[in-house]
Nucleic acid binder design. Sequence first.
DNA 1: TCTGGGGTCCTAGGACCC
DNA 2: TCTGGGGTCCTAGGACCC
Length: 426
Amino acid sequence: MKTKPVQQLALVDCNNFYVSCERLFRPDLAGKPVVVLSNNDGCVVSRSNEAKELGVKMGQPWFQVKALADEHNILALSSNYALYADLSNRVMNLLAEFSPNCEVYSIDECFVDLTGMPELRKISYAIREKIIRWTGIPVCVGIGPTKTLAKLANFVAKKHPRSQGVFNYNALTQEQKYKLLTSITVDEVWGVGRKLAPRLAAYGVDTVCDLRDAHVPTLRAEFGVVVEKIQRELQEIACVGMEDVVPPRQQIMASRSFGNPVHEATSLKAAMALFVENACVKLRAQQSHAAMLQVFLRTNSFRPDLPQYHPVMSVPLVTPTDSSLVINRWATLLIDHLWRPGYGYKKAGIMLSEITPNTQQQNDLFAHSESTSDSKLMSVVDRVNGRFGRGAVRISSQDAGEEWGMRQERKSPAYTTIWSELPLAG
DNA sequence: TCTGGGGTCCTAGGACCC
DNA sequence: TCTGGGGTCCTAGGACCC
């Protein structure tokens, strides 16, 4: 029997991605503490190294950081997803030149299969060099025999300046691997989060090495298949394969927190029309239909002193559809059912599920199909909005009231995607 | 005063059927 | 009507990721 050659999986991860994107167009921000905030300027979602050193935590609410920010002149920017998505595409396209087998894992990460290629160190540095030169975004490269170990190698590349942004786990001896894994706490492992780490600690599993070498049946019995998979990946047995083609989404969600609590049903419907549109654009982009619609409303759960209400309701769509108009009619109906006076709603959203390819249409025998007549209209809407910007054509109820608007006071221009916001060379 | 959004996978428990 | 066990399907909720 032939043994399989060791996989050489590289995880390429952009450093402080959103902050790095912002700095491209604001060179004056280099070397200064900068953070990027989530929607509504709510939480910190990206930090420059300087901000990390000052103690700003990932996911921390901005209002908690404000005092520290004033003291140290930390600059906070609202998130600008159009900019980040555009730069992400450029980075991913460059990576595709290095291997035919790439998997875009998130907006700022990509697995690149380098199995069988010679001189991995040289290739890794070439990747860094090319991406910084063509996009200005710094990246780190971690190589391992499994995805989990590639992620861990990337963590090492980021953490240790001596690695110069590249770390190859496969190049280590058994003893070096042991020493490395013993020096890293188990919570750094991909898939071990907030809850799992303390539970593992109760079993004496504190380091990555502890997890790798833990008693298999006990681990399996106490923590289930999820942790067992992680363990095998750490033992260099690949359990998570490369996904060469992105599978279509099984559920599509669209939701937002509101800048201020919303009280009126009309405002909720206006927000809902936008959520429906956003979700349906994604649905149509992956050429699918949805057969289930769920609508939810939420009051502010951070305010237990206020009356709480978190209703959810679903409707099956008799004829699976991708029509914004059809789905919006149902969403409006659901709001009429869910809405109660006397509550300040802080968040709302929809979820589309039971998603199937739009080629597998099964029409209802008895009901008149309402969606097919919309499909031409929808494709025109998508084309117009693609050309003139999202929202050029929209469902009219979106315009009812601005009560639900989002706070974004610190947003940078759409430097790369809107002509009028291109940076000018003075 | 101010606390993101969009996903996936797994498990437990209930309903139902044979 | 009584009894039991086992399989399947569905849903809700938890945990994790970025």
